[in-house]
Design a protein around this nucleic acid. Structure first.
Lengths: 238, 238
DNA sequence: GCGTACAAAACTGTATACAATTTTCCTGGA
DNA sequence: TCCAGGAAAATTGTATACAGTTTTGTACGC
């Protein structure tokens, strides 16, 4: 079999990415429970590809922390990484550092670009607040808006290396962020406030304050999430 | 051929790591010049293994930034990543953020552990100073001591996530750090000073100052390196 | 002499065969 | 009933064949 499903491998070299995204989506949304064993041949069979591209995808997922290799003396047995309180706390503080550095750069942007950015952030935060006030909160929308807010100033101000680092680390927080909005969608007012503080610091071209505001935002989010996460993640269903 | 050279693949599953370390060493030390094309079959032939483990090693190197895929419409042609001034500046500032966070944690360590750490750092920095004062500077030794200094407080204070992030990012700086000590081995006094400042902050349990001291150390190193790096890296010989 | 076109070589992507090891499960005995 | 032993199944690691694409080299025409 040279190419069982051309629709899946249309672009030659895209197959590992397809596998990667498929698996990542399952993990991030909790449909592949933490602790689950992942078997190369199973994935390969389900996606109608050989084990070779699956291996590439698994390696990437492992490098990014979505799956861990449960040691077995010789062979590596990939399993979905668990969700723990400690992991969330540490990951959020790391994201805070990275995005804090980006916010520092954003505060040193030329006036025109900075003001444009401030307008964008203000708009996104307003939509975020509206979404969080909805009687029936749309978790996907809330997640997307929060994500957009942070990504915006990173994209506008960070250099390629920092952006690469952000791209490498931030997606790992998605599992916890989705957990956050689904568990705390009733009390997102503090987030809105903290976003405003970030905007204000960038608007007044105050790098130190901006960096600190971002770090505080993530530290607080981690604290809030930490109070409700215990043992929720391990169950793999939410 | 099942296993051409058992000495290279003794531990079953270790082959990709052997290939990885071999290639990484060549890249980091500049023997594989920036811009060089890397050919799977060549590496496989030279190390007497098949392309499969080579592929794994290349994927990892690509993920870690040592090699980039020079796009060619369809196929990915792996080439050794270039050394540029901008890359060094950004990379060092990122390392500063990560290690700064670790230093912050180190400053909050229990007294006993903190004092033990301070003693270790003081000793390493003393040896670093002696090495830097030598009439004929041993670049490898200087690099090792500087590396040790920073790794020590990260190992002692950082959580698993931060350490994983550090492990992922820091090695990429090795290329530039070696360049640094080889180009600036005559003027390492500022580094010694900055290390002392870091130690003092940790000793007095002052997280903010410790974090800032680490960031300053890396920012200054980047600035010093930036002044001499231009166009040196691209040539691939030093 | 230079450029273009065509052929050949090189190289990567994918699939698959095979080996080695680990896990599972069944059977027999205490 | 429970535990031990062992065989079979499962799973990963490695090698290699094959296909498709890109690059290279050469020869021919201008």
């Amino acid at each position: 079999m040279k190419n069982a499903d051309p629709a899946l491998a249309s672009a030659r070299g895209a197959t590992p990415m397809v596998v990667y995204h498929a698996l990542r989506a399952l993990i991030v949304r909790g449909q592949l429970a933490p602790g689950s064993r992942i078997v190369e041949t199973e994935v390969a069979a389900r996606l109608r590809v050989s084990r070779t591209p699956v291996r590439g995808a698994l390696q990437r997922l492992a490098h990014e922390g979505y799956i861990v290799d449960s040691v077995s003396l010789q062979q590596s047995r990939p399993t979905v990484a668990p969700l723990t309180r400690e992991d969330a706390l540490e990951l959020f503080s790391i994201v805070g550092e990275i995005e804090g550095l980006a916010a520092r750069s954003a505060s040193s942007l030329p006036v025109a670009q900075r003001e444009a950015l401030v307008r964008e952030l203000t708009s996104i935060n307003a939509r975020f607040e509206r979404a969080s006030r909805a009687r029936v909160p749309k978790h996907d929308l809330i997640y997307e808006l929060d994500e957009q807010f942070h990504r915006r100033y990173v994209e506008r101000a960070a250099g390629p290396r920092l952006r690469a680092l952000h791209d490498a680390v931030k997606p790992q927080a998605e599992r916890y962020e989705r957990l956050y909005v689904s568990l705390l969608s009733r009390d997102l007012a503090p987030s809105v406030q903290e976003h405003s503080a970030i905007i204000a610091a960038i608007a007044s071209a105050d790098p130190d304050t901006a960096q600190r505001a971002v770090q505080v935002n993530w530290r607080n989010a981690a604290a809030r999430l930490g109070q409700v996460i215990t043992n929720v993640g391990e169950r793999g269903q939410w």
